[in-house]
Write a protein that binds this DNA or RNA. Structure first.
Lengths: 211, 211, 211, 211
DNA sequence: CATGAATGAGCATTCATTCAT
DNA sequence: TATGAATGAATGCTCATTCAT
């Protein structure tokens, strides 16, 4: 308590965070005890408390880690998207990567645990905001200037899409059955050419420029 | 003869299940220890094991309980729905009730825990199937006979809607902020009159008649 | 507490005792919980307390039961023994039956438990006395009148033989290896003709006549 | 790396083992709960699981401990034995020490518990083997070269003597009555001069040299 | 005569966390 | 910087026993 843990950087810290992500992904949050994480990473369990104030702190750091890593991947691919067709295709690829990276697993487990620990709920909400923003921005690029713009609220829809994304991943883990997700992506793909006329022919490139 | 518990009925069993639902709703699955549930219900913790083979058994019973209770409520209201407008309105009301009853909370917590305990995943999937079915049936009533029928796959969409529903509830618990949900329902409400022309003018009453 | 349990007789009592013997034999004393015994016998566990003041009371009754049953078998075969050869042969047969009946298992388990519950030690000692007596009497029949009579103390040896018997059975259960016991009995068989000349040519029939 | 306990050495480990021996000796295996052992040793019960994988592991370690300690004592005294008279005298002294050290108590309790937990039976058999070997070796030293050598099987007899030893100790704990044992040792003492002529006049010194 | 229901106490084990080194 | 040692509190679960019926 004398020394202030929660060191911001360092290779050992990364090692711990990586081990935490891996353990949460494999054994769930309930199975991600200090012992389990230390075993995964091959270090002493007391080391966790040298870098983080508590296990919860590490859990949040794990979410920050995967979130940042995935966000980079998303941003890198966003420039590829020039049509609704691209959007569906790239979206499917990114989803597959998300699942493989364990990002949404970590997210879902933490969101789930926030019920019992409301104090971390706010922080998780913060960490999700960039994703909602990115989703909304992407939608705006397709919607701006079209006749649907005044009808729909991209902000609300973005929230809903993130929720949907979270839910889909949770259901996937129930029985590891990809057919659910596959059917949905297939339908999106089929709908894309139909919806295209109503949307922007060539979506404008966009970042996080407007608020 | 009284050895393998999991008694099917009885007032005490109900008391335990109710206490379990209440505890999961309030403290999450991680906080729903045998002791915590017993405290909520005002009975001895050993009593749980007289009625259920394990805590996991009780958790599943809790989900079965809320699921059955909510399904009854849903079926009772289904006949009220005669237009897309009705659907949005009744849907919103039912969602509010779901949240209040804690049904989706119990569901979300159990789905989340299935990551670490794959053996219960299959059972949860079973318990979710009636909901997917109900969702799909309801959609079919609006879609059947319209020109959108060949374009969309109500089965896949139903899965997606259930996932969306699950995700929305999880996000709601993050910060207890209803604005997210409200904005979405408001938009649905606004979209209803626009979408109506494309769908069945008067949806056919339907149960679980077709497979 | 109002009614005095420990009923002396009755078919139901026998059923309980038999179930107790069976359970101790199979699962050991530590595994012979009220539940386990009731399951073996197919009755309600509370029934035990209608016939016995406590589980310990039932355990002792179980020992009394097997002890009496085996004593009858021993006495019935004693008249067959007319030579040292007979003794070894019949002794081997009776040992096999003892093991099969679980008598020595129950005895060994109870003796073992007496360490922690000294209050039952005295009762067990009492229950073992007839066996020591029988052993001594049998020895006396062979020794009386011979020149070895003043040299050995059949009382002490009888105690030792019973201890040996107990120990052998315990070791047998370690690995279920009969070879140990077989080798010993084989050697006894080989020694019998050698020892015979030193003992009574025709052992006198004897009961529990002398003190 | 510190995860699978069962640390091989260390003073704390010794403390735990000693406390376990003491507790088993006093309260029996059934009374040697983690809490009871911790109380005996004055340490936290969780410490047990830092050094041993389970209570069973500790029980076996306790047996290994007493067995090794007693074996050292036995070997140290073996050189004193030059006659049958010595054997009886030293044997009696060692038996007294065995009882005091609790070695045979621990052994008997563990052997008894192997009925319900067959998986530890094999290990216990292993731990008993040196004792059987020592007994046989000692007998061989007296028998070798004498006319009784071809008649008796020292291997089988050694097994029987160990069994006898075990049984005697168990009976002793029934009523803490030493007279049984005393009478037997007294008789052995009386028989020694009689048996001596038939055995080796001066037993050969021997270790575990021959197989 | 027998049972189902119920309980308080105890069990083995694991937890997050601390601390001296 | 990192670790081994240690602990108090909690975990899921089983126990012998009681009691109303």
């Amino acid at each position: 308590m004398a020394d202030p843990p929660d060191r911001a950087t360092g290779p050992t810290r990364d090692r711990i965070v990586t081990a935490a992500v891996e353990t949460i992904k494999t054994h769930g949050l309930a199975g991600a005890s200090a012992r389990a994480i230390a075993k995964t990473g091959g270090f002493n369990q007391a080391l966790i408390y040298y870098y983080f104030p508590s296990l919860t702190g590490l859990y949040l750091a794990a979410l920050e880690h995967t979130s940042a890593a995935r966000m980079n991947a998303y941003l890198a691919r966003m420039t590829d998207i020039r049509s609704l067709d691209d959007l569906v295709r790239v979206g499917g690829e990114l989803f597959d990567e998300d699942v493989a990276a364990g990002h949404i697993t970590v997210l879902a487990e933490l969101v789930s645990s926030a019920l019992a620990q409301p104090e971390i709920g706010a922080r998780i909400t913060e960490l999700m905001e960039p994703w909602v923003r990115l989703t909304q921005d992407t939608m705006d690029r397709f919607v701006r200037g079209t006749f649907v713009e005044p009808i729909i609220q991209t902000g609300a829809i973005a929230q809903g899409l993130v929720a949907f994304y979270l839910g889909i991943e949770m259901l996937y883990h129930l029985d590891r059955d990809r057919s659910r997700t596959d059917a949905l992506f297939a339908m999106f793909k089929a709908l894309a050419p139909i919806a295209s006329p109503f949307l922007a022919a060539s979506p404008q490139p966009g970042g996080e420029n407007d608020d």
